[in-house]
Design a protein around this nucleic acid. Sequence first.
DNA 1: GAATCGATGGTCT
DNA 2: GACCATCGATTCT
Length: 196
Amino acid sequence: MSRLSRDFFARDTLAVARELLGQRLVRNLDGKQLSGRIVEVEAYIGEDDQASHASCGRTQRNAPMYGSPGHAYVYFIYGMHHCLNVVTEREGFPAAVLIRALEPLEGVEEMRARRGGRPDAQLTSGPARLCQALAVDRRFDDADLCAPDALLFLERDAAILDEAAGISPRIGVRGDEATLAAPWRFYIRGNGYLSR
DNA sequence: GAATCGATGGTCT
DNA sequence: GACCATCGATTCT
């Protein structure tokens, strides 16, 4: 199973988001491997995207979005949750793909424990849920997901056919009409681990 | 099921 | 001091 390289992420964000469907997110936790298949993502593109954390320009918090593709942008939200993004496009242009849901593959028992024994359908079906299940927090902010020794990385798996891929506006975002309507959420139709 | 609401703290103006 | 790319419990229909 080959890892996704930096070249994969250094492209148009919508293309990266679409092609991340079906790929594996892998976490090495104390030697144990936890992984899941990506089933839902959202794209955040440039400072003109009102829903993006970069819409007000560069700050200390969103700096990783302006950095090198293939790095993580992990932010803390609502006083208790973490969310994981993968940075895309060229350095200097703020863009990223938010990983919104996974289908658990390896280390499911560990995920159940980390998620307080909740039903399996709720283990990784949300951006903050999957971070809790895979023990992803701000220690991974700006981490290089393409480094050979990365503890968090992406692996190539089967591509998702167009007829199996759904496209919709993003969830939970604020902004003007165009922002709310932008079809920048991608998901695997009918998958049991979607965030909603 | 759907709608509503509180939790809880980092970040930025 | 306001806001927040969420979650889970509670309170309805």
